[in-house]
Amino acid sequence: MSKPFDRRKFLKVSGMSLGVGALISVAPAMAGGGPSATLRRWFRRQNGEELTPFNLVQLSDAHVGFQGPPNPTGTKAFERAIDVVNGLDPQPDLILFTGDLTHEAEAPGEHAKRMQLFQTLTSRLKSKKVMYVPGEHDAALDNGVLYRQFFGETHYAFDHRGVHFIALDNVSSGKPAVGTEQIEWLKRDLARYPRTAPIIVFTHRPLFDLRPDWEWFTRDGDDVLNALAPYENVTILYGHIHRHDVHQTEHAMHYASRSLIFAFPDPMTAGDKKPVPFDKEKPFRNLGLQSLAEKKGRLDVDDVELTLREFGGTDGVQQILKSGESL
């Protein structure tokens, strides 16, 4: 059995655990041979794998290649997040990356270089099971052609520790949509599972209308949620909004991870969608990741903010910039 995450390894965990998601609603009966034991046996038959505790980390929106005032430190927050994840004991047995791995570039060859740099950086992760979905900055301008060369298919599904994971692409058509073909694929994929199966969907954009005038929505998100509606234990992880968020729809919990490049303001109070200004005193303020752990059928979700005390202040920021650069 896995040891629980040692959250002291994180430099800062923002707030309390947000463990409000039921991974499997029948979990308390697991020890007593109730419905979840049936589910466990079903998974074992299907996959040779029981429903067992796991830890996973969600990383999002690194925007490798981004240059600009909202974050003059480039990939430093992403690199720090990799160090944080590598410091976890036990190591997460799965890492999900929910899009915008890179920032788009129109100069010939430049976007491919950014994807190569992203892969070089992620190769430092000790945990080698890393799964990806694209963001619009990765895949929308060329309908995912370059992304597929580096990362493979943009939507797929797999089972891990007795949980069914579904990667959904709501970017590569160019518009915020999953599309009819992928939704039909999703329905066929789901049809193989009982309604009690624990399901984790990961995608880039929110599947609900969070702030449509900021493009924080998916046009056919309702169709996706309707396809998932018969299933009792659905968790949806996404990125795109560059801030942590928790939302409940009728039958699913939705969690957004912070970005690793810059943050956006609170959509409920801000008028315009403008990045939160860079803070020299706290260069990685508002940036971070999300950690999730299965515990007795519940899914603990922790929002983790990166902080770097050793790099605080202007001197500190200069330390993490490349030699010769200045703010």
Binding site: E104, E106, E136, H137, A140, L141, V171, G174, K175, P176, P212, D213, E215, R219, K273
Partner: peptide, 17 residues
């Protein structure tokens, strides 16, 4: 009402409204 371009069209797309 703010109308937006929701087909990603490049680096300034986020402000196309």
């Amino acid at each position: 009402f703010v109308a937006i371009c929701d087909h990603f069209c490049g680096s300034g797309h986020g402000n196309m409204k």
